[in-house]
Design a protein around this nucleic acid. Structure first.
Lengths: 110, 110
DNA sequence: TCGATAGTTCGACATATATCGAAATATAAT
DNA sequence: ATTATATTTCGATATATGTCGAACTATCGA
């Protein structure tokens, strides 16, 4: 037996699981702060700040295979979006889910 | 080497871990909706709605030892407060952390 | 003091997770 | 074509987690 509310709870539990790992939360915050929400790629050629997989690993000192694994988790949970740009794969935080999460703690599921 | 920001990230990762389990999130939401925030005990004699460990287990169909285990986790993460009232132990959600979480997604750690 | 009720702790088990390095795949540049 | 760069997949390993039932502890009421 499954209902809408329970599915919603499962969804949020899944999102929180994605954010429950130290490195994953660091990656998420890095993406939130370095990327213009909603801007695909969100690459700043001036400062060199970007959000591709490799940069995340370099900035946060996590090996590529681990970054890849975590990125996949964040994506699976719907927290980030990704798009190939040549060799690189750019990621950015989905602003919609960010608002949804703020709301969750303001007026939790009734 | 550890800094303030990183400690904050660890703290939030810990909070999200507490909310990442389906049953634990259900318990948390149950407490949020059935309890007057900040009211110790938050017991409504009229409706019979309460928030003690046993009631949680009954309402959500989770065996006592599991409820106890999850309550401990929620408490450890600072999400709930508990107070003994005779035989029962009443729990309620800390409204401060609820606001802190809403804020986290509005203006994530810079 | 004894029995009932409420909650915790313990031990066991199955399952999930985080991490790494090596090998594989995809794209771009020469 | 070959090489360099970027990312993913795979396999291994260590560690953490969720759940249960049984045994234990605490508090109340008769």
């Amino acid at each position: 037996m499954s209902n809408y509310r329970d599915d919603q709870i499962k969804h949020f539990a899944d999102v929180f699981k994605a954010l429950s790992n130290h490195n994953r939360l660091r990656m998420f915050l890095h993406l939130v702060t370095c990327c213009v929400p909603g801007t695909v790629g969100s690459f700043d050629a001036e400062t060199g700040v970007s959000a591709c997989v490799g940069d995340l690993g370099r900035d946060l000192e996590i090996v590529p295979s681990t970054v890849s694994h975590h990125i996949k988790e964040l994506h699976r949970a719907g927290l980030i979006r990704m798009e190939r740009r040549g060799q690189k794969i750019e990621c950015w935080v989905d602003p919609v889910i960010l608002r949804g999460l703020a709301r969750f703690f303001q007026e939790p599921l009734k």
